[in-house]
């Protein structure tokens, strides 16, 4: 383990589509899931992450390296997170929130959840159903009644741009 050697330890992470990534242990242990594996001594070889694909893992590792390079300054970390997430689309964000959840990285989880909320804030009900893959289980009458009850909340909704 890291404490025994003077040099920084590197871990090898494997995505579910068999891509391998090297990452400094000090950055990787931002993930509580990985930290537990390291502490339990099961991080000797390759760490398989069965719920994360290569594209998402690459992105998460970029985040791990970026955020761990910033000293303890919450403002700077926040602006790094904002910048890191600024150009991500909904699908990428959804993959990242799943990865952050699986890897148990609460700071990333909170930041991505907030970003998704920001993306969907002004969207239509139809957009949300499509993006979240949710089936409309209302009858037309029920749906009309629910919408009528909060009619004013449908003012200022953006036009759908996802198709």
């Amino acid at each position: 383990m890291a404490a025994e050697t003077g040099t920084p330890t590197t871990l090898t992470l494997k995505s579910n589509d068999d891509e391998l990534f090297s990452v400094a242990e000090s950055a990787a242990i931002l993930s509580v899931t990985i930290r537990n594996m390291v502490e339990d001594g099961c991080a000797g070889g390759v760490i398989p992450l069965d719920n994360v694909d290569g594209k998402t893992l690459a992105s998460v590792i970029t985040y791990m390296n970026g955020i761990s390079a910033i000293p303890a300054d919450e403002e700077k970390k926040k602006s790094y997170r904002d910048k890191f997430l600024s150009d991500k689309d909904f699908e990428t964000l959804a993959d990242m929130v799943l990865a952050a959840n699986y890897l148990n990285m609460s700071c990333l989880m909170d930041a991505v959840s907030a970003k998704i909320a920001q993306v969907m804030e002004k969207k239509s009900v139809g957009w949300v159903r499509r993006k979240f893959g949710i089936e409309n289980d209302y009858t037309p009458e029920e749906e009309a009644a629910v919408k009528e009850e909060h009619k004013w909340t449908f003012e200022g909704v953006e036009t759908d741009d996802d198709n």
Partner: peptide
């Protein structure tokens, strides 16, 4: 995870998204 996202939405969006589905 969805609940965690919904918690961060403003009231106006939440009231609108009651129309997404019965479970929402």
């Amino acid at each position: 995870i969805i609940e965690n996202i919904l918690l961060r939405l403003p009231a106006k969006s939440l009231l609108r998204f009651k129309a997404v589905s019965k479970s929402w």
